[in-house]
Design a protein around this nucleic acid. Structure first.
Length: 506
RNA sequence: GGCGCUAUCGUCUAGGGGUUAGGACGGAAGAUUCUCAAUCUUCAAACCCGGGUUCGAUUCCCGGUAGCGCUACCA
């Protein structure tokens, strides 16, 4: 492919907060499109809003993108042929272009005061007129402009919007047309000298030779202004693709109000990046056929196309994300998922920060036991409660257990199990099976009636993982030096019987 | 208010002038398991409304309605 035909796309976030899930999808689609077409993916930092931009957010942003596996070919940290990649480093360039527009008569100085404009706007609204700029300063004669400029009167710079409808092509939505009557002459440089987004974005995209602008559809109404800037500057207009909004369950634009929306929060919850990417890819895009849901990164690149992006807004569905996350937890290589998952138990202070091989081996088996039960890794510490947080009194008090405890054969099972288990220094799964068989014969209980009481005694709940794997984990865990002691079967049984006796007395 | 965008199961979507309107999440039922989770099987569940065009519209066109966005010297 000739260089001049090469696809060049960009992701251009503002470092004004945590990287949001909606922006991530935009980044993902840009990235997929670039990788699919053998093009270039560019990261650009839009920090013209000096008030709200912060360096720490920029650092965080890069980290989040890396975590997601979205790598960029050009950017503020890696450079590239069209620097700078941070708008705040580019102020003179914007100023030069603005002067050029003024000299060519395509833009003009506007001396209107902000309050004055606000008044006009409110009045227009009150009279049900279009609140667009009157164009007053457009008619000022050169001499007066010169005089007022010389007197140091602050002036913004406005672009002259042409007298014809502005139309552009959108890959997702087809042809879009705006009547010029609804587009004010936009301010491109503020009276303070700071250029405005709708202007700098065009300069940047043109300077960086961006071929496709893929971004959120909240920009769609801004696009005519931007097209006007391209045209005034005589620069080629790129292709646009406006992505639909991601909505919360209440059909309102997804925001912090809806809970976790930042990449960081998903990471902290133990959502795997590949699950998040897969989910987001499906939110607003589907392959032809539409009967596949699982798309690892490579498959996504192979299948993706902007033409198949859906124009309608989509509601974010945590359940489906969970399903994908469970899928990728199962698919993930054991070493990777063990390491990741162990981190959650370490942070919860259930596992030591430094794990010797013995503990590490035990932890791996524990995780294998627990992992099928979780949607997100953050649920692990709570799930691990069956090992670490045994509490007999609580088990007896739990409403869920009431039925089991009240069952006719429960006392015989409990007594029989307790007596036998107490005799075992270390219960083995084999011995456990024997005991259960003996109990079955002795009490006449079988199935649930037999196993539920024992389960309540051992883990405080009537349902949970297989005893075959659970019992060795309990017994071996009790011998390990862990931040939180794992009670042995004997300890559990003793505690349970004591609590039972106490309850009987009350 | 004006302008713009959007409209298929509860949700994400495939499809498209004649289809049993397909898949997935979630839900329900069953199989399996001591139980729960996982797994497997089965089931229920949708073309926003009204006009055209047409032999025939869910599909094409127009209008309505609803949702969302924009309407800044924010990005």
């Amino acid at each position: 492919m000739a260089d001049k035909d090469k696809v060049r796309v960009r992701f251009a976030p503002s470092p004004t907060g945590q990287l949001h899930i909606g922006n991530v999808r935009t980044a993902l689609y840009n990235w997929l499109f670039a990788r699919k077409s053998g093009g270039v993916f560019i990261l650009r930092i839009e920090d013209t809003d000096v008030e709200r931009s912060e360096t720490r957010y920029e650092t965080q942003l890069l980290e989040d993108l890396k975590w997601l596996g979205l790598d960029w070919d050009e950017g503020p940290d890696v450079g590239g042929p069209y620097p700078p990649y941070r708008q705040s480093d580019k102020m003179q360039v914007y100023q030069q272009y603005a002067e050029r527009l003024i000299n060519e008569g395509k833009a003009y100085y506007c001396f209107c005061k902000a309050e004055e404009l606000e008044r006009e706007r409110e009045q227009a609204l009150a009279e049900q007129r279009q609140p667009i700029y009157s164009g007053k300063c457009r008619k000022l004669d050169a001499a007066e402009v010169e005089r007022r400029r010389a007197a140091g009167e602050p002036a913004a710079i406005r672009l002259k919007i042409p007298e014809h409808p502005i139309r552009f092509h959108d890959i997702v939505r087809g042809d879009v047309e705006f009547s010029n009557e609804v587009v004010s002459d936009p301010i491109i440089v503020r009276s303070g000298g700071m250029p405005v987004y709708n202007y700098v974005v065009v300069i940047d995209d043109a300077d960086m030779k961006i071929t496709h602008v893929v971004r959120g559809d909240d920009h769609i109404s801004n696009t005519p202004k931007q097209v006007a800037v391209y045209e005034a500057l005589g620069l080629p207009v790129p292709q646009f693709a406006h992505l639909s909004t991601i909505l919360g369950p209440d059909r309102e634009r997804l925001s912090k109000r809806h809970g976790a929306t930042s990449v960081a929060s998903f990471r902290e919850m133990g959502v795997l990046p590949e699950a998040l990417m897969n989910y987001l890819a499906l939110l607003g895009w589907a392959p032809s056929g539409g009967d596949r849901e699982i798309f690892p990164r490579d498959e996504l690149i192979k299948e993706f196309s902007l033409e198949r992006v859906t124009p309608s807004p989509a509601i974010f569905d945590n359940e489906k994300l969970n399903w994908l996350n469970r899928h990728y937890i199962k698919q993930s290589p054991p070493e990777r998922i063990h390491q990741l998952a162990a981190g959650f138990l370490q942070r919860a202070k259930l596992l030591p920060a430094e794990m010797d091989p013995k503990i590490s081996n035990w932890a791996d088996r524990l995780l294998d036991l627990l992992l099928p039960y979780v949607d997100r890794l953050e649920q692990l510490p709570e799930r691990a409660g069956i090992l670490f947080a045994y509490d007999a009194a609580k088990a007896l008090a739990l409403p869920d257990n009431a039925e089991v405890l009240a069952a006719e054969k429960t006392p015989a099972v409990v007594q029989g199990f307790a007596r036998r288990a107490q005799a075992e220094a270390k219960l083995t799964p084999e011995r456990f099976k024997e005991i259960m068989n003996e109990l079955k014969a002795e009490s006449g209980a079988k199935g649930k009636d037999l196993f539920h009481p024992v389960r309540v005694m051992l883990i405080g709940a009537h349902s949970g993982p297989d005893f075959d794997r659970l019992i060795p984990l309990i017994e071996e865990g009790s011998e390990l030096k862990l931040p939180v002691h794992v009670k042995s079967v004997r300890e559990r049984v003793r505690e349970f019987m004591a609590a039972l006796e106490k309850r009987a007395l009350v």
